[in-house]
């Protein structure tokens, strides 16, 4: 069985402070966290606007956004590949096969998640606040900001959902990043590579490390949110 070998491989990699592993982890963190930051900057206000605004076609936008939550990464990756290719409309940027393209790909995948879950979270809150806010003459912008701030602890979970999808993603970053050793190789693409090389224990070992990192990250965020909620009330 491969599992015991996988565990010992994982421990050996960590204990030796394997340089390649450290690079891969650093790039994975940079790409994923940047993508989550981009998605938060775009998705949170978008979700808040959708929760507040009433306009014709709002339902259609919400359905579309919900559907995009299930966007197949390979499709997103391919579309972005064609856009960023030197022969594509955004070829001038020279982003293909760089971390920028990978960040863009992951951001595209998680913006719908962040926006859609944000809208759901803020919908209920807005129903409670709406009349009071209109009585106070609160502007649309201030109302969005107030909702986002008041729902901040629930939105941490929304961001974590985006983080989860981004860090687990392999299809899109493989296509637009190219899985170039030392440049665009992340945890997930490295796992895919080791699997295709038939080195299953190493692949599984890398997988264990990825899971461990995610557990630590989620645990830390959860604890921080819990602490902040206790302090802020």
């Amino acid at each position: 069985m491969d599992a015991p070998t996988a565990f010992s491989t994982a421990f050996a990699l960590i204990l030796n402070g394997d340089a390649a592993l450290v690079d891969i982890l650093r790039l994975s963190a940079l790409v994923t966290l940047s993508a989550v930051a981009v998605a938060a900057v775009i998705g949170l206000p978008l979700g808040a606007a959708l929760a507040l605004a009433r306009f014709p076609g709002r339902g259609a936008v919400i359905v579309a956004l919900n559907a995009l939550m299930g966007l197949p990464p390979v499709v997103a990756g391919l579309a972005l590949y064609l856009l960023l290719s030197r022969s594509g409309p955004l070829g001038e940027l020279g982003w293909l096969f760089t971390p920028k393209a990978m960040i863009a790909a992951q951001a595209i995948l998680i913006i719908p998640i962040v926006a859609s879950l944000t809208r759901q979270t803020l919908d209920d809150l807005w129903r409670e606040y709406e009349e009071q806010f209109r009585s106070l003459g609160v502007s649309m912008g201030s109302a969005m900001a107030a909702l986002l701030w008041d729902a901040r602890f629930s939105l941490v979970t929304v961001i974590l959902a985006g983080l989860g999808r981004a860090s687990a993603e392999v299809g899109a970053v493989l296509i637009v990043g190219g899985n170039i050793a030392g440049h665009t190789r992340t945890m997930t693409t490295a796992i895919a590579l080791e699997t295709s090389k038939g080195d299953l224990p190493l692949a599984l070992g890398l997988g264990l490390i990825l899971i461990a990192v995610m557990v630590i990250l989620n645990g830390a965020t959860f604890a921080a949110a819990l602490w902040a909620r206790r302090v802020a009330g």
Binding site: L30, V31, L33, S34, A35, A37, V38, A40, V41, P99, K100, I103
Partner: peptide
């Protein structure tokens, strides 16, 4: 968040 994104 924006600054962090720009860093990337």
């Amino acid at each position: 968040a924006a600054a962090f994104a720009a860093l990337g």
